[in-house]
Design a protein around this nucleic acid. Sequence first.
DNA 1: GCGACAG
DNA 2: ATCTTGTCGC
Length: 221
Amino acid sequence: MIENWPRTPGEAVDLQETLRHQVRTETPLTRQPRFVAGVDVAYPIAGQTVAGAVAVLDAATLNVVEIATATAPTAFEYVPGLLAFREIPVLLAALAKLSVRPDVFVCDGYGVAHPRRFGLACHFGLLTDTPAFGVAKTSFIGTHGPVGPERGDHTDLVDGGEIVGSVVRTRRNVKPVYVSAGHLIDQAGARDLALRLTREFRLPETTRAADHACRAALKAD
DNA sequence: GCGACAG
DNA sequence: ATCTTGTCGC
């Protein structure tokens, strides 16, 4: 499946249209997550080598359990809606070096809140056959009403008449984040987990750990 | 038709 | 995504 990775936007869109039907977002988490992993990719100012990281944290304590990184040449240009084709290769390379099996992945970006309902979190969850959802820092698609000022306040992200995610306030009076289910987890579950993984910062500890790890890996390369 | 557009 | 100084506030 990863051996026939798309090389052009046209091929990528076709693959998304094909795989989107396999996504399961009505499914609550099968078991309570013990290992939660954040995944992220860092890019160089110039050049084609990118670094990816998978940071596994204990869901209860949020302590880092294990971190794996990898570098790889990025073959796909950035195109809104096709982010997965740019990041998944190096993320799978990093995942291959991991010894523990995460119970759920927290991706940097969107899940079903996507033009074709198949964002990075859907694709990554499908390829790993593991629950996954996305937490994005900026808006992409959809509209939403105002979000309350307190941590935990949230409102639906709507697109094309359907709820595709939640806009969640993770810290009082701080810009909210966008949470959307990816695969094998429902919207409420993704939202709850996103909040549980967030403490004193705007973003989940999982994505923060992955972010730091891939940046360090990029610099080291 | 003209913008907007995860990272 | 990435470059980039100082600065305001807890």
